[in-house]
Design a protein around this nucleic acid. Structure first.
Length: 629
RNA sequence: GCCCCCAUCGUCUAGAGGCCUAGGACGCCACCCUUUCAAGGUGGAGACCAGGGGUUCGAAUCCCCUUGGGGGCACCA
C-alpha cells in the first residue's frame, strides 16, 4: 500500500519521493506488489484505490504541488489572463470543491490540477501554466514500422509543446519490438522527420541507429529486453501473470466462435489455472508459452487531463492480456508500461485511440508497484469522412508533405492548431509562440478533420515570413528536383535566385511550386500553344504586329539600360499609339516570354530573363505566329 | 456485439450561465488595388449551437435521455 501512496505522491508532487538511480528501475526494485489483493483489485473492495486519482487524492496532490511551486508563482507572468480571470477572482464552477470562502484563489501547480478536472462539471481548470522547473517528463514513442505519420508528428508536437512550456523533459523512445515490421530505414525516416519539425528531445537516440543520450536509456526497446524479462518474471512469481499455452490458431478459433455467438471477444482463461502437471504436459508437447497478465473484473478509473474522469470496468478489457509472446518478445501494452515507469514518465500524452487501453496500463503499473502517470488523450486527426486518418484515405506521411514543399513552420503551426487553439484570434504562431501559449487543458475533445487547404494557407503565410536568403536555401532541393524531372534545363545559382525573391515569395504556397512559378527562366526552349499568344480581344494579325512592335521598343530600351521601370512607359505608349489595351499587349508579351498566362509581374520577368533572351523569345513568338498563317 | 469517447458555419475553432440578434480563421462570392497571377484591403453568404426534456429570472454553456459520429476490444503499435 505504502508503495502506491508514495507512487502517487511521486507523480503528483513532481516525483519528489522518487529514490534510486535512474535506470535501476522496476525489475530489481522492492516495489513489486506481492499479492493480488494488495497490488491490484483489492482496493476496489475497500473503495479507496491506491495509486488512483480519486478526487480526494487530487486535492492532496494539488496541495502538495502548490507547496512545491507557490514560491515561484509570483514572478510568473499571467499570460493567459485574457482567457481566464486573474487569480483571486476566479470562480470555480464546483462550489463543493472550492468554496469561495476559501479565500483568494491561489493558482495551483501547472499540471497536477488537471488530474481533477473530471471530477467537477465542465472544464474547471484555471490553467495558469507557469514556467516552474519540475521533473515533468513526457515522451513520444513511435514505432519504426512505417514512415512518420502525421498523427505521430502531432502527438510528438503536443508532447514537445507541453514539455517546453512547463520546463519538463521530452524523451524519444523507439518501440521496435515488432521485429517483423520494424526497420532502420523507418527509424531514420522518423528521427529525421521529428528533427525536421524542429522538435528537439532531451533524451533518446539522436540519429537513426546512433547512440542514445540521457540517463534512462537505452531508448530502443529491443535493447531493453532484459528489463521486460525481469518484470515479467516478477509478475509470474507473484502469480499476477501466468504462462499460456494456447496457440494463435486456437485463440483465433475461440475468437471467431465468440463473434458468431455475438459475444464480446475475450480470452477464456483456459490456461489461467493450470496445474504444474498440465503445464509440464504442454511443455512436453513442445509448446512454448506466452505470458498472460491476469485481469480481474472491477472498475478502473483515471482522470484524463483532457477528458476528465473515465471509468472502465476491467471486465470489458478482453480478458487476461498477453504481455510476452511465445518467442519471448514483449508486447506493446507491457513494454509501454515498463518503460514509462522506468523512464519516470509523468504525463502520458497520446492519441485517443489509446483511451480504452489505458485501464490495462493502469493495472500493469499497479501490479508492478509503480506510480501511475497522468494521462492526456488527444483527439484524433480524421479523414474527410470523419474516420481515423489513414493512409488509404489521406496523405499521412510527413515525408510526402516535406517533398511537396510544406515548410516546418507551416506544418508545426497547422498541427498545433489541430485540436488546440490559443484562445486568442492570432493563428499564425511560431514554435516559440506555440510553446509560450500551449495549454493541455485547452485541447479539444472532438476529433478534427485534416484540412489541407488551411495547411496550405498557413504554409504560404510562413513562406512569406521567411528571410529571403533562407527561402533561397530551402528552394535549392526543389529546383534540383525540377531539373531531374526534366522540367528545367539548369538550376539557377543562389545569387540568381535571390534576385527573384521579391517577386516569388508572396506567390509561393509551397516550395514545390517554384518550378511552376519561374521555371520558364531556366529552360532553353519554351514549349507552348501558339494560340496562347493571341489575347482574347485580339486576332492573330494584331498579335503579330503587337509582338513585333514591342520587340523593337524593347530592343531600343535595352540599348541604354534594362530596368523594369524603364520598360513599362514606352510599352504603354506603344499600346496607346496603336489603340491597343495595354493589358492585351502585355499578355501577348507575357506568353511569348514565359509560355503561360499567369506569371510574376511582366517587367520584372523581362529583367530576370535578360535582354538577349527576351528579344530571342519575342522573335520566336513572331515566327511561330507567322508560321501559323 | 460489448465498452469508452465525442457533438458550435463545408472545415479548424472562440465560447467557462446574462457581455451571443454566436466571434475569428480557411475555403467560397463580390468589390478595391492591378499588365496576368498572387499578396493585401473592404464587404457578403454561411451555425434556429445534433434533437428532446429538465435546472434557472435567464442555457451554446449545467443535468438527463435520444440520435448521430468516432475509437477500442490481437502472441500490431
Amino acid at each position: 500500500m505504502a508503495q502506491h501512496d508514495q507512487g502517487l505522491e511521486g507523480v503528483a508532487a513532481g516525483r519528489q519521493g522518487h529514490q534510486g538511480p535512474p535506470g535501476a528501475p522496476i525489475a530489481d526494485g522492492p516495489t513489486l506488489a506481492t499479492t493480488p489483493g494488495d497490488g491490484r483489485m483489492g482496493a476496489h473492495r475497500s473503495g479507496q484505490q491506491p495509486g488512483q486519482l480519486v478526487p480526494e487524492r487530487c486535492d492532496e496532490a494539488r496541495r502538495a504541488a502548490q507547496d512545491l511551486v507557490v514560491g515561484h508563482l509570483q514572478s510568473v507572468s499571467q499570460h493567459r489572463a485574457h482567457r481566464r480571470p486573474p487569480s483571486g477572482t476566479y470562480h470555480r464552477r464546483d462550489p463543493d470543491r472550492r468554496p469561495e470562502s476559501d479565500g483568494p484563489y491561489r493558482p495551483p501547480a501547472a499540471w497536477d490540477v488537471r488530474a481533477c478536472r473530471g471530477s467537477g462539471p465542465g472544464r474547471p481548470v484555471p490553467a495558469t501554466y507557469n514556467r516552474v522547473m519540475t521533473d515533468i517528463r513526457v515522451r513520444i514513442a513511435p514505432s519504426p514500422t512505417g514512415p512518420l505519420h502525421i498523427g505521430t508528428a502531432r502527438t510528438a508536437l503536443f508532447n514537445f509543446l507541453f514539455a517546453r512550456h512547463v520546463g519538463g523533459t521530452f524523451v524519444l523512445r523507439l518501440e521496435d519490438t515488432d521485429r517483423a515490421r520494424s526497420s532502420i530505414a523507418y527509424e531514420k525516416e522518423i528521427v529525421d522527420g521529428l528533427h525536421w519539425l524542429g522538435l528537439r528531445w532531451d533524451e533518446g537516440p539522436d540519429i537513426a541507429g546512433g547512440p542514445d543520450r540521457g540517463a534512462y536509456g537505452p531508448y530502443r526497446q529491443m535493447q531493453r529486453l532484459g528489463l521486460y524479462k525481469g518484470a515479467a518474471r516478477r509478475l509470474l512469481e507473484a502469480d499476477l501473470a501466468y504462462p499460456c499455452y494456447c496457440t494463435p490458431a486456437e485463440l483465433d478459433a475461440e475468437r471467431r466462435r465468440q463473434e458468431t455467438a455475438h459475444l464480446q471477444p475475450r480470452y477464456s482463461g483456459r490456461c489461467a489455472h493450470l496445474t504444474p502437471a498440465e503445464r509440464a504436459a504442454f511443455e512436453a508437447e513442445g509448446r512454448r508459452p506466452a505470458i498472460r497478465f491476469r485481469i480481474e473484473a472491477g472498475p478502473v478509473a483515471f482522470d484524463d487531463l483532457i477528458r476528465g474522469r473515465v471509468e472502465i470496468d476491467a471486465a470489458n478489457l478482453g480478458g487476461d492480456l498477453v504481455i510476452v509472446r511465445a518467442d519471448g518478445t514483449p508486447l506493446y501494452h507491457f513494454t509501454v508500461v515498463v518503460d514509462d515507469a522506468a523512464m519516470r514518465i509523468s504525463h502520458v500524452i497520446r492519441g485517443e485511440d489509446h483511451l480504452s487501453n489505458t485501464p490495462k496500463h493502469i493495472l500493469l503499473f499497479r501490479a508492478l508497484g509503480q506510480p501511475v502517470p497522468l494521462f492526456a488523450h488527444l483527439p484524433l486527426i480524421l479523414n474527410p469522412d470523419r474516420t481515423k486518418m489513414s493512409k488509404r484515405k489521406s496523405q499521412t506521411a510527413i515525408g510526402d508533405y516535406i517533398a511537396q514543399g510544406f515548410i516546418r513552420e507551416g506544418l508545426d503551426n497547422y498541427l498545433a492548431l489541430l485540436g488546440w487553439s490559443s484562445g486568442s484570434e492570432e493563428e499564425v504562431l511560431s514554435l516559440d509562440e506555440l510553446v509560450e501559449r500551449f495549454d493541455l487543458a485547452a485541447v479539444n475533445r472532438a476529433g478534427a478533420i485534416f484540412d489541407r487547404e488551411r495547411l496550405e494557407w498557413l504554409n504560404g503565410q510562413w513562406i512569406r515570413r521567411l528571410a529571403p536568403d533562407e527561402l533561397v536555401e530551402r528552394l535549392g532541393p526543389f529546383l534540383e528536383a525540377e531539373r531531374i524531372a526534366g522540367r528545367i534545363d539548369r538550376v539557377p545559382s543562389d545569387v540568381e535566385l535571390r534576385v527573384l525573391m521579391p517577386i516569388v515569395q508572396e506567390r509561393l504556397p509551397l516550395l514545390g511550386a517554384i518550378g511552376d512559378l519561374v521555371g520558364f527562366l531556366f529552360v532553353d526552349e519554351l514549349r507552348y500553344e501558339p494560340a496562347l499568344l493571341v489575347p482574347k480581344r485580339w486576332d492573330r494579325a494584331t498579335a503579330l504586329a503587337g509582338l513585333a512592335a514591342a520587340r523593337a521598343v524593347i530592343a531600343d530600351v535595352g540599348r541604354v539600360s534594362y530596368e523594369a521601370d524603364e520598360l513599362e512607359p514606352p510599352l504603354r505608349r506603344l499600346a496607346g499609339e496603336r489603340g491597343w489595351k495595354a493589358g492585351d499587349l502585355f499578355m501577348a508579351i507575357r506568353v511569348a516570354l514565359t509560355g503561360r498566362t499567369a506569371t510574376p509581374p511582366l517587367f520584372d520577368t523581362m529583367v530576370a530573363l535578360g535582354h538577349g533572351r527576351t528579344l530571342a523569345r519575342l522573335d520566336r513568338a513572331v515566327a511561330l505566329l507567322g508560321d501559323a498563317a
